[in-house]
């Protein structure tokens, strides 16, 4: 603070004297003194109206030095982000910094930049986790749509490490969106098989997969809208009944269709026939014995029904 005031005072005085010198030289010393004083004091007064002499500056060099010397855990998220950016500036090929920053940005809705960073990291060396993060960022950027680019990233991640849950989940989602339920079920049950039973991802994937695979195909509600949303109330029962009949016939021909069994159980629940729904699930359970992934999906749907019954 003192230095600002001292320097300002010196400059003000010098300026005042410089302006007043011609007047003082002309013999009007008092007038010169008044002019110098008014300029110096006036400038100082005008400065102090809004001046903050005690507020120090924060050049970036000083800031980043402080961030570098602080434990990362002590830093705020924004400071951590800046430290990662600093690391990348110093070493543009720093895979760890590129990946961490990419993930951070992807989680804070800055997918475009995140994608660029993750791609840069991948140019330094392939890594299943980074491919998976890249795929997720691409999905988020495209509002949930698994684009061809995202699919390529997930596929490569899956090839490098099939034990990571996200690539399998999203590849299954992509297959499901294209109407390939069998492929979707394969991806999902495969990853459920691989994950430990206490992994929270396992239950989450099973719940989601069971919900999707049990939805009626081709008819109302197939594209994510509520089943039979546009149907007249009187028609719903007849439509469900017809659909159930078709499903039963199809399962007679192809009893290995997991999605079919799940859909049948769901349809029977909609027809308020819980015992028959349970029967369908039990049949499926016995059909897929020894296949823990598929059994997990059956259990997940059963749990959902139990919840609905309690709820009702």
């Amino acid at each position: 603070m003192m230095s600002v005031i001292a320097i300002s005072a010196l400059i003000a005085l010098a300026a005042g004297v410089y302006v007043a010198t011609p007047v003082a030289r002309d013999g009007a010393r008092v007038a010169g003194l008044v002019i110098a004083g008014l300029i110096a004091l006036g400038a100082f007064g005008a400065y102090l109206v809004n001046g903050e002499p005690d507020l120090s500056g924060q050049p970036y060099d000083v800031l980043i030095e402080r961030l570098r010397s602080t434990e990362p855990t002590q830093l705020t998220p924004i400071e951590q982000e800046e430290r990662l950016r600093d690391a990348i500036r110093n070493n543009p090929e720093d895979i760890r910094a590129l990946t961490l920053l990419g993930r951070f940005l992807a989680r804070t809705d800055r997918e475009l930049e995140a994608i660029g960073l993750l791609q840069r990291a991948l140019r330094q060396g392939e890594d299943a986790r980074i491919y998976s993060d890249l795929g997720e960022a691409l999905v988020n950027l495209n509002e949930g749509q698994v684009t061809a680019e995202a699919r390529r990233a997930f596929r490569r991640a899956y090839e490098l490490d099939p034990n990571i849950p996200e690539p399998s989940f999203f590849l299954g989602s992509a297959a499901y969106a294209e109407g390939d339920r069998a492929m979707a079920a394969t991806y999902w049950t495969d990853i459920i098989n691989r994950l430990p039973t206490d992994d929270p991802y396992r239950a989450a994937i099973a719940d989601r997969a069971a919900d999707l695979l049990s939805r009626p195909t081709g008819g109302p509600g197939a594209d994510g809208e509520a089943p039979f949303a546009n149907a007249e109330p009187g028609d719903i029962e007849a439509m469900i009944s017809a659909m159930v009949d078709r499903l039963e016939m199809r399962l007679d021909d192809d009893p290995g269709d997991l999605s079919g069994w799940l859909t049948l159980a769901r349809a029977r629940m909609m027809m308020e026939k819980p015992a028959e729904a349970r029967e369908a699930l039990e049949t499926a359970r016995s059909r897929f014995e020894g296949q823990p992934g598929k059994l997990a999906l059956i259990s997940a749907l059963e749990s959902a029904f139990a919840f609905e019954e309690t709820d009702a």
């Binding site: 320097i7 300002s8 400059i11 003000a12 400038a43 100082f44 400065y47 001046g51 903050e52 500056g57």
Partner: peptide
């Protein structure tokens, strides 16, 4: 300090 000198 630079900012304050500038303001002055």
């Amino acid at each position: 300090m630079i900012a304050e000198i500038g303001r002055f």
